[in-house]
Nucleic acid binder design. Structure first.
Length: 771
RNA sequence: GGGUUCAUAGUCCAGUUGGUUAUGACGUCGCCCUUACACGGCGAAGAUCCAGGGUUCGAAUCCCUGUGGACCCA
């Protein structure tokens, strides 16, 4: 019989035809019936080119989750979304067009961002499709769509009405040149030469003088405490006393705090609002009253007295002069100081108290701990990231941002009494340009309103993704069936943000956990283990790799390289060598495609041996699939296929399958060969969906493999104790032939060990042993 | 400074509740076209299981201390 498969190597071009077949037949369509499995797919963010190869590997694995669930008979909702809100696209757009957001017309700027996102998004969608993702592309969602943003706003309005939102005045990073609060992500650090001034503080009721070193003497007027390390012997006797601030002549208490380093400067530190983030933490911890010394214009405020109105730098120079005149300076050192700089304006940022909106979270923490403890984490060790984070939350969540490309905060203020009003939920509101939907102020009856200009922190959008995919507030029937979702796949660096915020928001709105399982993946690093970054130039573009080697190769590499939860290395060479396994699989199938299909047979000892090894492997794979850890099935399948099935079993029964044995014996071999191969194909189907479907349809069915179910272990008698003797005997024969310079087909005289007598006929035929 | 995590051949990785000779792959080096496959087969070399201590009849595995790396938070 001629083999039905002609080619001897896997050709990734075939994937395109298979992809088309799947699309035409809509085989992955979700039906909200039976057992339902919902994936809260992470919507990727198009932040620049190229997309990260680690992300592509990540999505390949999420698809394996979907396919695994289908192979166990579930109806799978696998939405595809794109996250389009937030800072990165704004920065990308500013750079691309060489403009500044706050100096550009808002409508105009939003248009430019949307265009940039469209381009980047198209590439990501192309990659996801070519990877064979079985998600719902026909209605993929965007977090900046009218529908999505109206959900973000509606959930905010709901929480507002429940009293979960409040306004507070707290320190923020501020860039006074561009006039905006900035996120930590926009801060860069630079070593800037500056003066470290050693100032003399008189101590009350003592003749000692305390020396305090600071790079920010202009903040003396905002000083509210002096701290020393509790273990610092030098200052033990002055703790609790008051120190007099030089020039300003106000008194503050000397206290202890472990953050004062004995070795830095004199060991005593002044705490001012706000020199740096440590000051912010100290003010909060020591409950100090803040003094706002720097205004939003970047100049000193009235509290600075003689220095009011001066720019920070000028005030610093002037106060140093004054300190020196009054002999209050011990000495001045010129140092390089690591200074936080605004990435865009390149000036040092200031920390200034600003009014922002906050969402309450502190009071939900106990509830979230309880929900979190019920969520099954894969791998379980990463639950700790969430639990530790819950322990360390100290303030509520600041949710307002002075940005453009985000969901608008749906609030209008009464022009007269400034009372904030929220509109009815259900629509998408743009208060910065829309007319007010509120007709009369609830407080003063005024009819004039002004819209809020700020947007939400992007996590406000992302954190309702499970509600969005379950059609919360849109389709109640659907929502009931699909919420809570089954699984949240995501990477481990955003457990504290995306995972946590999602539990918080969904709990606040539905009272339930958003999913029963969380699946946490590590990062893709380069082949030397270093993080990929554009500045290092070690970023690998996934698209050409996928085009060159094919999706299945890429997917099998992803499965066999990534141990769930750990970082993984991305090297093209490793991906390339993975391809060989697919060719091996193809060639095994090629051999079997020349043999008839036998449905039933009386198996021989050799067949029983491989079938019991197969059972063992099926069980092993099941463990991996149950935990959505594809490293386990992919490596055990590869080892079984290559090192046992192909190397030993096929060689042993090849002769029997061709001829020279009884009909029963021949049938048993052919039956077993097909049994093993078909099982392998089914197990591999979620990992390498293309080649398995291709081979399945040539060999076993006119229907797709992706409607089949996983094979189960068949409880064969355990013959695995023969594995070692068999492989060792084979090895011995091969070695002996090599020693004697014989070809493998030459005849040789080797005794078969007693324990292997029941395999004698196959072994004899395999090695051409003299009987 | 706090936390998470890792450390096994030149490289990557496995090692389930402690139990013979530590798994597999890549790479290297030899030999071989053998009626599925040279994108293959067979073979060889290559490991103080990070260091020190402890528990044990027995430790890569459990405990302690230390060192080094990665990441997160401050």
């Amino acid at each position: 019989m001629e083999p039905k498969i002609k080619e001897t190597a896997w050709n990734p071009e075939i994937e395109k035809q298979i992809l088309k077949q799947w699309e035409d037949a809509k085989i992955y369509e979700f039906k909200p019936q039976g057992e339902i499995f919902v994936i809260d797919t992470p919507p990727p963010y198009p932040s620049g080119r190229p997309w990260h190869i680690g992300a592509a590997a990540h999505y390949a694995q999420i698809d394996m989750i979907a396919r695994t669930a289908r192979m166990t008979g579930k109806n799978v909702l696998f939405p595809i979304g794109i996250d389009r809100n937030g800072l990165p696209v704004e920065m990308y757009t500013e750079k691309k067009h060489n403009i500044r957001m706050h100096e550009t017309d808002r409508n105009e700027f939003l248009k430019l961002c949307a265009t940039a996102l469209d381009d980047l998004e198209a590439e990501m969608i192309q990659i996801m499709k070519s990877l064979g993702l079985s998600g719902n592309f026909s209605e993929y969602y965007r977090t900046d769509s009218e529908q999505y943003r109206s959900l973000t706003q509606a959930t905010f309005i709901e929480l507002w009405k429940k009293g979960q939102v409040y306004i507070a005045n707290r320190p923020n990073n501020y860039d006074w040149v561009t006039g905006t609060t900035i996120a930590d992500a926009e801060i860069v650090y630079d070593e800037i030469p500056t003066k470290l001034v050693y100032m003399k503080f008189k101590i009350k009721d003592s003749d000692r003088v305390l020396i305090i070193a600071s790079t920010r003497p202009e903040l003396l007027c905002a000083c509210q405490a002096v701290i020393v390390n509790p273990e610092d012997e030098r200052y033990r006797d002055v703790v609790g006393k008051n120190a007099q601030i030089p020039v300003i002549n106000r008194e503050v208490q000397i206290r202890t705090h472990p953050s004062a380093e004995k070795e830095f400067g004199s060991g005593a530190v002044m705490v001012c609002s706000y020199g740096d983030q440590n000051d912010v933490a100290l003010f909060r911890e020591l409950k100090l009253q803040e003094i706002v010394a720097i205004g939003k214009n970047g100049r000193m405020t009235e509290v600075a007295g003689a220095y009011a109105g001066l720019k920070v730098k000028q005030a610093r120079e002037k106060i140093i002069e004054d300190l020196q005149k009054q002999n209050l300076v011990e000495r001045i050192e010129n140092i390089n100081h690591r200074t936080p700089i605004s990435e865009r304006s390149k000036i040092p940022i200031e920390i200034i108290p600003m009014e922002e909106y906050y969402l309450k979270q502190k009071e939900s923490i106990e509830k979230i701990k309880e929900l979190g403890s019920k969520i099954v984490f894969h791998p379980s060790m990463h639950k700790q990231i969430l639990m530790n984070w819950l322990e360390s939350i100290t303030i509520d969540w600041p949710i307002s941002r002075r940005r453009f490309y985000g969901t608008e905060i749906p609030i209008w203020y009464c022009k007269k009494c400034l009372e904030p009003h929220v509109p009815e939920p259900g629509k998408y509101y743009k208060p910065w340009k829309d007319p007010s939907p509120i007709s009369k102020c609830a407080k003063c009856d005024s009819t004039e309103f002004v819209g809020e200009e700020r947007t939400f922190d992007t996590w406000m959008d992302s954190s309702v993704s499970p509600l969005y995919v379950s059609k919360y507030n849109q389709d109640n029937e659907f929502f009931k069936k699909t919420y809570p979702a089954t699984i949240r796949p995501q990477s481990k660096d955003i457990v504290r943000t995306w995972l946590y915020y999602t539990i918080l928001r969904c709990e606040q709105i539905t009272g339930k956990t958003p999913w029963s399982d969380a699946w946490i993946m590590g990062y893709g690093v380069d082949e030397h283990g270093a993080k990929m970054s554009k500045s290092k130039g070690n970023v690998v573009d996934p698209l050409p790799v996928i085009q060159k080697f094919g999706a299945d190769t890429f997917r099998f590499w992803s499965a066999s390289e990534i141990n769930l939860g750990y970082d993984f290395r991305c090297s093209e060479q490793k991906i390339e060598t993975t391809k060989k396994f697919l060719s091996k699989l193809l060639n095994i199938s090629r051999f079997l495609s020349g043999l008839p299909i036998i449905k039933e047979a009386k198996t021989t000892p050799t067949d029983n041996w491989i079938l019991s090894e197969l059972d063992k492997m099926v069980l092993e794979c099941k463990k991996g699939f149950d935990d959505y850890n594809f490293f386990v099935p992919s490596t055990s399948i590869r080892e079984f296929t290559w090192n046992l099935f192909a190397a030993h079993y096929i060689e042993m029964v090849k002769g029997r399958a061709y001829s020279g044995f009884s009909q029963d014996e021949q049938n048993a071999a052919i039956f077993t060969l097909h049994k093993v191969l078909s099982t392998l194909l089914l197990l591999l189907a979620p990992i390498t969906p293309f080649i398995t479907d291709y081979l399945w349809q040539i060999l076993y069915s006119d229907k797709t493999i992706h409607k089949e179910k996983f094979p189960q272990p068949e409880d064969h008698e355990d013959w695995t104790k023969f594995t070692k003797p068999i492989t060792e005997f084979n090895s011995n024969v091969w070695n002996k032939k090599k020693e004697q310079n014989l070809s493998l087909k030459d005849t040789i005289d080797m005794p078969i060990p007693e324990e292997l007598q029941q395999f004698a006929k196959d072994l004899q035929s395999m090695h051409n042993l003299k009987s």
